[in-house]
Design a protein around this nucleic acid. Structure first.
Ligand SMILES: [Mn+2]
Ligand SMILES: [Mn+2]
Ligand SMILES: [Zn+2]
Ligand SMILES: [Zn+2]
Lengths: 143, 143
DNA sequence: AATGCAAATGCAAATCGTTTGCAATAAAAA
DNA sequence: TTTTTATTGCAAACGATTTGCATTTGCATT
């Protein structure tokens, strides 16, 4: 995996290696998704991108998200209701707890659950390609 | 809970009790969703409904699904990609394994996973309102 | 059974998130 | 630099779902 001067993964090099052209919009979008720690949707990414280059189009954001998804750079989530939301891949796998009141997304990971999922699939005669575990909850109001 | 002559839940009575009018389209749609054991989408329900009443509209199907969902009669699922799919509620809670090749939906239930979810949410200071666990897999091809 | 009225319907048009065709532009190969 | 080819921005198309509105219907009331 290619690293850059700061020791982080160099996505541009990774993509170039895969024969993908590094264009101005792609460089900007890539920066946005790799620097944020939230789960923005395409329009939000577009909004942030426009601040850096006034004539980036929403189509390009969508096209780039699909490209990066196929390339494994980002992950797409389809939380209940709304549009797809994205996050930079590469960290360890985790699932999400969505605060139904604020829309906040909290990440968590349970190895036990992950393992149980595999067991279940195996018993049913399947191999899991991916899965989705989303908890929708409300902050507990202590009595 | 109101039961009818056959001992099953009488949805029409339940709805009427809640001040909801039992119309011809609603009666038909209700029959369809309570008799099927698959997970049809709105258009499929519409298709089946039209066989019984040639001038039911897709709008009414959508409106009725929302109504029944709010009333707790059915559950809505948003599996990856496609449109919302519905199933009759009332049976015990279960989660789904989706065959990515055929679109088939297999139901399963793991008390262990359910319990672990509660623990996780509690640790994070949340109460779970509902959750979604979907496994996307492919039939294991035995060597 | 006939009446009255709010609720529900069908239809067409609107909306939302997303994708696509196409001519213009820019990346990278030569 | 020139050439080749991928990528862009824009507008129009898209699929799923919702909505406005005039008409019909369920059903509580006579
Ligand atoms: Mn995340
Ligand atoms: Mn089910
Ligand atoms: Zn997981
Ligand atoms: Zn569950």
């Amino acid at each position: 995996m290619t690293k850059n001067a700061t020791g982080r993964v160099d996505h541009e090099a990774e993509l170039r290696k895969a024969g993908i052209r590094i264009t101005r919009p792609r460089r900007i979008i890539l920066r946005i998704v790799s620097e944020t720690d939230d789960h923005p949707d395409a329009y939000e990414i577009f909004r942030r991108a426009v601040q850096e280059d006034k004539n980036i189009s929403l189509s390009t954001v969508y096209r780039t998200m699909k490209l990066l998804e196929e390339h494994g750079t980002i992950q797409r989530h389809a939380f209940a209701g709304g549009p797809s939301r994205f996050e930079h891949a590469g960290e360890e796998h985790h699932d999400h707890l969505i605060d139904v009141e604020t829309g906040d997304v909290i990440e968590f990971r349970s190895d036990k659950i992950e393992k149980l999922q595999d067991e279940i699939a195996r018993e049913l005669g399947y191999d899991i390609l991916h899965h989705k575990l989303e908890l929708y909850g409300r902050k507990r109001r202590s009595a």
